[in-house]
């Protein structure tokens, strides 16, 4: 407990995520170009941009689902290296929610949420289950705990996925287009959970096209195109007075209708 306290004390000054001069290539294709980004603790950041602009790749580099070839990434004061132990240590403090939920279909909702606390954090089953129920209640899906993911709607599955991440007590949450695969009437239930999470002070990086969400919760909005950060600003100036032509064009396209 005391170790945790000192960690979070030190964390008050160190940024949650720091990327310096990050570059990445897929073969010859230069997906991320000189990315510099600092995310303070408690900050909510929305990343948007056209498809193929590298926004998903960027957040996937933070928990090393993608490997960057140049530059430096520091998560919670821990530099990301090739070392497997260190990568796993960072992943334990970084939660991630995927576009296609990626729940484990052979396990119940409750087991989905308990698996990692039990196996990775070695917590006893009863404690892990109690905690999972608590988080499932928070995303208002506790009554489905014994069902399998395949029996739930997309919106419900995504809420379970959020609860599953929260069970690991992450210090930062990455959202990779969490509502893009959902039917329109289910988007709101997921966004509500995310807004709630933001209100509680969770550090968040969200790749999303939900501009309403960006306006409500984001501290900063980042616009990416062709692997680079084009514009970065607080939501109000970003939406009302975008500086770059690309940003203006992009915003007019997605807000136009």
């Amino acid at each position: 407990m005391s170790e945790q306290a000192t960690q979070s004390q030190a964390g008050a000054e160190t940024p949650m995520v720091e990327m310096r001069g990050v570059n990445k290539w897929y073969g010859d294709f230069h997906v991320l170009r000189d990315i510099d980004l600092t995310v303070k603790r408690g900050e909510r950041i929305v990343i948007c941009g056209p498809s193929g602009s590298g926004k998903s790749t960027l957040i996937r580099c933070i928990n090393h689902l993608e490997e960057h070839q140049q530059g430096e990434i520091v998560v919670g004061g821990v530099p990301l290296t090739q070392d497997v132990k260190r990568i796993e240590q960072i992943r334990r403090s970084v939660g991630m929610v995927f576009q296609h939920f990626n729940l484990f279909p052979h396990l119940t909702v409750l087991e989905n949420c308990c698996l990692s606390p039990m196996w990775v954090q070695k917590r006893p089953r009863r404690e892990a289950e109690a905690q999972a129920m608590q988080y499932l209640e928070r995303v208002q899906i506790a009554e489905q705990a014994l069902k399998y993911p395949g029996q739930l709607s997309g919106g419900q599955q995504q809420r379970v996925a959020i609860a599953r991440s929260l069970c690991m007590h992450p210090e930062v949450m990455l959202f990779d287009e969490p509502t893009s695969a959902l039917d329109p009437e289910m988007i709101k239930e997921v966004l509500d959970v995310m807004v709630e999470l933001a209100r509680e002070g969770m550090t968040m990086l969200c790749v999303t096209h939900e501009m309403g969400f960006a306006k409500t919760v984001a501290d900063r909005v980042i616009f990416m195109d062709q692997g680079q950060i084009i514009e970065e600003n607080a939501p109000e100036p970003f939406f009302n007075a975008p500086q770059s032509e690309r940003t203006q064009l992009f915003l007019s396209q997605i807000l136009g209708h």
């Binding site: 497997v84 796993e88 992943r91 991630m96 995927f98 296609h100 990626n102 052979h106």
Partner: peptide, 29 residues
């Protein structure tokens, strides 16, 4: 699907946990 292993990795599981708890049970079935 690759997403299964990615989700397990994102939760901090090591290689043998990802295989033994997530990928193999589904593949064997």
């Amino acid at each position: 699907p690759r997403g299964q292993e990615e989700a397990a990795a994102a939760l901090g599981m090591g290689y043998w946990q990802r295989m033994g708890l997530i990928v193999l049970p589904q593949a064997l079935k």
